[in-house]
Design a protein around this nucleic acid. Structure first.
Length: 540
RNA sequence: GCGCUUGUAGCUCAACAGGAUAGAGCGCUGGCCUCCGGAGCCAGAGGCUGUGGGUUCAACUCCCACCAAGCGCGCCA
């Protein structure tokens, strides 16, 4: 049973009895003495008298309901909350549910098959992915998996800014590097790309490219860097369904078309030799230039076309993950979506805050251009992909993250991710041990679950029951960290249980029931780790 | 100066649409290995939720002001 199921019933009962009420909550009880579910509905009943008799009347009303009687053994009022205590057989029904749904447990139709496009990373192919990209990558991949699990149709897309000034500069920089390593004097532009990776790329070029045009070097650099980016993403278990090229977009004529559309809608005007978008009509601070005096586009123009294109491709919801340096950009792109005649509500921009790296107390400052930065690659090599991912996902997206490299390295063994994975491994070993002892799957499925009466067992059961709710909350709020915290708690409950009780013992019946619980734990852990994109080791 | 984000235990973070006594991990102190893997468990210490007001039966959560940190405020991307 889920809490909104109970909530709907409560609403029905109250409405039928003629009560008026504000929106109330039904939530899993925070303590076992408060039962399985609690609600604050007594606070929300519109009753000017607020009498004790009224409370008693409502409790009585609920107690008389058939459905309530079927599912709950007790309802009580405490501190003006109403607590619901599930019947035993309902509590234990979670086990066969998990065992039969397996990797589908937690899946829902919450998203009603709506189509979502999640756009993230979208780093310029001018250098390796940084840790900022890494956090976005981890987040984008995980939120996509969660949304997909929650009944949305999700597509993950990388928007490739493969043209414009920065790409030109990249070509010029590579050429200079190339000339230098071939003993020809050349200067790398000050605002060009100076990183060591540029030297590596230059070294890959064949002899005799001295006289090739800048565009040749630009293409070569882009392809090489893209290769690296794709490889890093793959090693980080991040996968994109589509790569959308800005260059192709420009060639398609869609930019001109969208500007034409804006013109038709009356939101562009000519001034000071440039073409402006009237974004203030939709709440932006000032109007924005679309076409510069030199007739070239600003970044905004193709970006508007890109967003319009996404919506025209039939997506109901667009989710963009951006860095905080783009936060100020949100109002104008929302304005653009609105000006094109679409609902700006369709666009959700999640700002993924920066990660500040420390080595001990020392802050590591970074700059892409100077080639002075810690890459995602380095972080994965130093800390490991799973630990890196977990650090990123454990924190809410809009919170700043301080990441101490020394600490993460030094305490690798005590990192929460290992705590979680260790619990998972333990479950696998117990299951294997059970097999060795000849406990069949049959016995496990048909075990007498009501033998699980220990406090720790019920605690694990309660948590397992809440997994679907946690997933749904995560999908609703677009917060991945909830899953990470849930898994940590669940792992804790399991470790604690393991320490105190033997799963496989002389008593065959209890062993089977406990093995069923371990199986359920294993399944939920598996599903949770899968959602986060963290590996599921069988041994450590 | 203006805007956005953040501020919770020594450190890294929770607190599920405003709900009951603010919780975990690390670190610290003290215990636990005849037994399914001790990368674990148990117990303890540790808090004026940045500060000051306000709204509410109820505020970490909402509103206002202030303080601190980060990021923006280009015809850059």
């Amino acid at each position: 049973m889920k809490n909104h199921e109970l909530k709907e019933h409560l609403e029905k009962i109250l409405r039928y009895a003629g009560y008026e009420f504000d929106r109330f909550n039904v939530f899993p009880s925070m303590k076992k003495e408060f039962g399985d579910f609690s609600t604050n509905l007594l606070f929300k009943i519109k009753d000017p008298t607020q009498t004790k008799t009224n409370t008693e009347k409502i409790i009585y009303l609920l107690q008389q309901d058939n459905w309530i009687q079927e599912n709950f053994e007790k309802i009580e009022e405490k501190n003006s909350f109403i607590n619901f205590f599930l019947k035993e057989n309902i509590i234990y029904s979670t086990i066969p549910e998990i065992l039969s749904k397996k990797h589908e447990y937690g899946k829902s139709s919450y998203g009603e098959k709506k189509r979502i496009l999640v756009e993230f990373v979208s780093a310029n192919p001018t250098g390796p992915l940084t840790i900022a990209h890494g956090r976005q990558a981890a987040f984008g991949e995980a939120i996509s998996r969660i949304l997909s699990f929650s009944g949305y149709q999700v597509n993950k897309e990388y928007y490739l800014n493969d043209c414009g000034r920065q790409m030109e500069l990249l070509g010029i920089s590579l050429k200079a590097h190339y000339l230098q390593i071939n003993g020809i004097p050349a200067e790398i532009p000050e605002d060009g790309y100076h990183g060591d990776y540029m030297k590596d790329i230059a070294a890959k070029l064949p002899k005799g490219c001295e006289n090739k045009p800048n565009s040749f070097f630009e293409d070569f650099a882009r392809e090489e860097i893209l290769k690296t980016i794709k490889k890093d993403l793959k090693n980080f278990s991040v996968h994109f369904d589509s790569w959308f090229s800005e260059k192709q977009l420009r060639l398609s004529g869609k930019v001109e078309k969208i500007i034409e559309k804006l013109r038709e809608n009356g939101y562009v005007y000519q001034a000071e030799g440039a073409l402006w978008f009237k974004s203030t009509a939709f709440g932006d601070d000032k109007d924005r230039v679309l076409v510069k005096q030199d007739r070239s586009y600003t970044y905004l123009a193709p970006d508007i076309a890109y967003h319009a294109d996404k919506i025209q491709r039939g997506y109901d919801i667009l989710i963009n993950l951006w860095g905080p340096d783009h936060a100020g950009y949100v109002p104008r792109i929302k304005a653009a979506v609105a000006a094109c005649g679409f609902s700006p509500e369709k666009l959700h921009v999640i700002i993924v805050q920066l990660t500040t790296l420390f080595r001990g107390k020392e802050k590591i400052s970074m700059s892409t251009r100077k080639g002075q930065f810690i890459t995602l690659r380095q972080l994965m090599d130093e800390v490991g992909p799973d630990a890196t991912k977990f650090f990123f996902l454990f924190r809410k997206a809009d919170s700043h993250l301080d990441f101490d490299l020394d600490l993460a390295k030094k305490r690798t063994e005590e990192n929460p991710v290992y705590y979680i994975q260790y619990a998972f491994v333990r479950a696998i070993h117990i299951m294997m041990f059970g097999k060795e002892k000849g406990v069949s799957e049959e016995e496990i499925i048909n075990a007498n679950f009501s033998l699980l009466k220990e406090e720790q067992e019920l605690e694990i059961l309660r948590k397992l029951k809440n997994f679907p709710l946690t997933v749904e909350q995560s999908a609703r709020t677009l917060e991945v960290s909830k899953i990470a915290h849930y898994l940590l708690e669940l792992a804790g409950a399991f470790h604690s249980y393991y320490q105190k009780f033997r799963v496989i013992d002389e008593d065959r019946e209890i062993s089977s029931a406990r093995l069923a619980l371990v199986h359920c734990f294993y399944i939920v852990m598996h599903n949770g780790l899968e959602l986060l994109g963290i590996s599921k080791p069988e041994s450590m």
